[in-house]
């Protein structure tokens, strides 16, 4: 089956479709969420890249942008929201906090990196990353999905 022309091209089409229609999940945690909103907003307008449909429910969305500090109180909720998302699902870890604890890494209530809770596809550095950086992360994720280089 796998070498039949139909299946391969359907597969390709699926990958292309998944990459170009990521529906992000409206999920702001801290300061980085404001820059995420800027990326959605008028100037940066990331609807240009096919992921304009911000959904409020995890069950509707396939891209989670963890934008902010992950605290020990919030971490189980993030995992739960991630579990509620349907496959295929992807995670962008936005900012120093979500990637490695950021300026708060010495704090007693902060998880140093969201990758301890959910698998992460793309990390964005910066505190906060500029909207351009987030858009680049989105493009990177899209390219990887289209090339079939994602874990799930």
């Amino acid at each position: 089956m796998s070498d039949s022309i139909l299946v391969t091209s359907l597969d390709e089409a699926l990958k292309w479709g998944t990459g170009k229609s990521l529906w992000p999940f409206t999920f702001g945690l801290a300061c980085c969420a404001i820059e995420m909103m800027s990326a959605m907003g008028s100037d940066y307008d990331w609807a240009r890249f096919g992921s304009d449909v911000f959904r409020d429910s995890p069950r509707h969305s396939d891209l989670m942008i963890v934008s902010g500090t992950v605290t020990k109180k919030m971490a189980p909720r993030i995992r739960r929201l991630y579990d509620q998302m349907a496959f295929p699902k992807f995670v962008i870890s936005m900012g120093a906090c979500a990637s490695a604890g950021g300026p708060y890494v010495r704090g007693y209530s902060v998880v140093d990196g969201v990758d301890q809770v959910v698998p992460v596809d793309v990390y964005v550095y910066g505190c906060p990353p500029r909207p351009e950086a987030l858009i680049q992360a989105l493009k990177m994720l899209q390219d990887r999905i289209v090339a079939g280089r994602v874990k799930h």
Partner: peptide, 26 residues
């Protein structure tokens, strides 16, 4: 509340006066 408790006060007490600024910023 408490889902974003990041110990800003305590971290600001761990460094010199101008260093506290980054936690106050946030």
């Amino acid at each position: 509340i408490g889902y974003l408790h990041r110990n800003a006060e305590k971290l600001a007490e761990m460094g010199a006066y101008p260093k506290g600024m980054i936690y106050i910023d946030r």
